[in-house]
């Protein structure tokens, strides 16, 4: 098994997923298979290969510092489950 149950628990916590016992077992097995598959790549010797920072052979793509009209507030807020017409509403964030 390439992934432990603890690792999957941690990843699901980071991803804000609450998994049942059965789901946890299933995910550990399935995610483990994916990781194992990707690990095939580590069979290649990459000692002399420079790490790639980006998949596209492009650099220095910029835009000018020019104002573009923002979106209408109502239109943006409509994407959220809840708002008060001015702000997005989310469960209380305390302890800041």
């Amino acid at each position: 098994m390439s992934l432990t149950r603890e690792e999957v628990e941690k990843v699901s916590l980071l991803g804000r997923l609450r998994l049942t016992e059965e789901e946890l077992a299933l995910m550990t097995a399935q995610l483990g298979q994916i990781v194992e598959y990707v690990q095939l790549l580590s069979e290649l010797n990459t000692d002399d290969v420079e790490p790639m920072a980006h998949a596209v052979e492009l650099s220095n793509v910029f835009r000018d510092d020019v104002l573009v009209a923002s979106y209408d507030r109502a239109e943006m807020l409509a994407n959220a489950p809840r708002s008060d017409g001015e702000c997005y509403l989310v469960p209380a964030v305390l302890g800041e």
Binding site: L67, S70, R73, M76, Y88
Partner: peptide, 29 residues
């Protein structure tokens, strides 16, 4: 001190009414 945000053309002006300077890029659609 830029006129616009780092990755989109929305204004950086301070003190505007809430959520009037956003677009799909800066809210991460």
């Amino acid at each position: 001190l830029t006129r616009t945000k780092l990755f989109c053309g929305c204004s950086t002006r301070f003190g505007a009414p809430p959520n009037t300077q956003t677009c799909p890029v800066c809210v991460g659609m």
